[in-house]
């Protein structure tokens, strides 16, 4: 079984978000980039577990990004994985990202494609579903457990107000969230090994974007908290009813 894991570099979760050029670009100055946590903690680690268990024969890591994405891919390679692929283009349009990955993946006959449930920067969560359609595969989204038995995969999938156990045969695209695996920290051996692992740079396919980010906006600042005495909850209830009008 060959696994492809999709990776997205994102700003560290503690980043204070700021925009430049009259709020049209994300200001990445001084920002530390990490692997999207859903991709790293769950997709990468689960793929490695499947390789360690002898279920998977190869784990490939792929990202769509320019050269500045490489340190992030090397970090994923330090966790494990046989080779990495970087498609040499940059886009905020999820269709372009998915179509680029699909273009590469279609020639490689992957049995399982894993991605995070969404990236924590643009929160789209669309690449997995788009890939499934472009690769003509079934798609199981928002999964918190993956078991593989031969050609058959059983997952626990989030649904409205609960979860569902689904099974399906490979090939499949699965988007991962908490529960799929436990986060790992790369060890020194992995970090050394990652330096010499193959990192293929692939020229992008000609794919036109179908959306673009025009501008950004910060949410309105709160006007200031109104403190209520801890022994006067009747007042809080009254304010929620009469002033905030939410109950």
């Amino acid at each position: 079984m060959k696994i492809l894991v999709c990776l997205c570099p994102v700003p560290d979760t503690t980043t204070k978000i700021a925009f430049g050029d009259n709020n049209t670009t994300f200001n990445s100055q001084g920002v530390t980039f990490i692997i999207n946590p859903y991709d790293e903690w769950y997709s990468v680690v689960r793929a490695l577990e499947l390789k360690e268990a002898g279920t998977a024969t190869a784990v490939h890591l792929i990202t769509v990004g320019k050269a500045d994405a490489e340190p992030v891919i090397r970090k994923a390679l330090a966790l494990g994985g046989d080779e990495a692929i970087r498609i040499d283009t940059d886009s905020n349009d999820p269709y372009v990202v998915a179509a680029q990955i699909a273009q590469y993946a279609s020639a490689e006959n992957y049995d399982l494609v894993l991605c995070g449930k969404e990236s924590i920067d643009y929160n789209n969560g669309t690449v997995g579903g788009m890939l499934a359609e472009l690769l003509d595969m079934n798609y199981l989204g928002f999964v918190s457990d993956i078991k593989v038995d031969g050609n058959n995969v059983t997952v626990l999938r989030e649904i409205d107000g609960g979860d569902e156990t689904d099974s399906c045969v490979l090939p499949l695209v699965i988007s991962c969230q908490k529960g799929v695996a436990e986060a790992r920290i790369p060890n020194m051996r992995g970090i050394m090994a990652a330096r010499t692992k193959p990192l293929k740079v692939v020229a992008p396919a000609a794919i036109s974007s179908v959306s673009n980010i025009v501008s950004f906006e910060m949410p309105p600042a709160k006007t200031g908290v109104r403190m209520i005495a801890a022994d006067n909850m009747d007042e809080l209830v009254s304010l929620l009813h009469n002033e905030a009008k939410v109950i």
Partner: peptide, 12 residues
């Protein structure tokens, strides 16, 4: 975007 820390205006 950024998990609710900001908004983006996206043109399709």
């Amino acid at each position: 975007v950024f998990s609710g820390k900001a908004f983006a205006f996206v043109n399709i």
